[in-house]
Design a protein around this nucleic acid. Structure first.
Length: 291
DNA sequence: ACCCAGGGTCGTC
DNA sequence: GACGACCCTGGG
């Protein structure tokens, strides 16, 4: 395989930092020159901005243009989406100003399932390290610019890992969940191809809940980040925090019912709740970093 | 040294 | 439905 290049014009709704740093993905890292490199499926890609262009380059398992348009969801009009959401209220408007270049990626379903099982009661730096170790041990190597990258393992590849193997990679109590989920998918007790056909989000969430380690929050992340279900609204500690600050104003944020937050989001943001969630999450988290 | 929190889920009461 | 426990790591 040789290196391919794809170039598009710069646009407001494409900012690499916003896209890769808003918590939806774990395998993109910034380079010294400010560009980002990441691995997804059998692709290793570099994304860099010039004065007027966005340049994608790397090793791809197929045509780089098709792969980028699909993965970065380049045919969805984010300016139109932002216009609708900004009209909801000033809070959302402010959060959009902060992360105007966010796009929701269309990531691999299998990788997203395992990644977000690992995310449970965990922090992002550690999640990223664990996923890298899994890939280095069970994935396949790909070289780009003198560096070796590893694909995220397929179901078959990861099914070779025992619970103890996973524990040794630092997964902690999530080892058994990842192992058992892998087996369920391998045996097609949960058929990933058929999941895509379920149009109703609540039904789809129920089906995902059959996988060990996949509760409501993880299921919502899977649907949003790999299946373009923009109507779901994953509620984690940060989103709970920001929704309480902006709207609910409860003394004890932990006591708020998750269903209350979700129905509030549905009422305010409708079928774009998931995208609103990303603006709010990014806003709150970045603010927290600099504080 | 100790405590707390991190993109939650699961088993038990 | 509510409560704790849970493996591990980094930061106060």
């Amino acid at each position: 395989m040789n290196e391919q290049v794809y170039v598009i014009d710069k646009m407001k709704s494409f900012n690499p930092k916003h896209i890769f740093d808003c918590g939806q993905c774990f395998r993109w890292n910034e380079n010294e020159d400010g560009s980002y490199t990441g691995v997804f499926k059998d692709n290793v890609l570099n994304v860099r901005e010039t004065d007027e262009k966005i340049v994608f380059s790397g090793i791809c398992g197929g045509n780089i243009k098709d792969i980028c348009r699909d993965y970065f969801d380049l045919d969805t009009d984010y300016e139109a989406i932002k216009k609708v959401l900004a009209n909801v209220d000033d809070n959302v408007k402010e959060s959009i100003k902060y992360g105007e270049g966010i796009r929701i990626l269309k990531q691999d379903l299998w990788e997203t399932i395992i990644s977000f099982i690992i995310s449970a009661n965990n922090n992002i730096p550690r999640i990223k390290k664990i996923i890298e170790r899994i890939s280095a041990k069970y994935g396949k190597p790909i070289c780009l610019n003198g560096n070796t990258y590893y694909t995220f393992p397929t179901v078959e590849e990861l099914s070779k890992a025992s619970v103890q193997d996973l524990r040794d990679l630092g997964l902690g109590f999530r080892d058994k969940r990842v192992h058992d989920t892998t087996q369920l998918i391998l045996n097609k007790e949960v058929d990933l191809d058929k999941l895509q056909e379920i149009t109703d989000s609540d039904k789809l969430r129920e089906e995902l809940n059959k996988l060990p380690g996949v509760g409501d929050k993880v299921a919502d992340c899977i649907m949003l980040f790999s299946m373009k279900r923009f109507d779901v609204f994953p509620v984690d500690v940060w989103v709970r925090r920001v929704m309480n600050e902006l709207y609910i104003k409860s003394e004890d944020e932990k006591k708020i019912d998750k269903k209350q937050i979700r129905s509030l989001a549905e009422k305010k943001y409708g079928n774009l709740a998931g995208i609103a969630q990303q603006y709010l999450f990014y806003w709150k988290r970045e603010e927290n970093k600099t504080a």
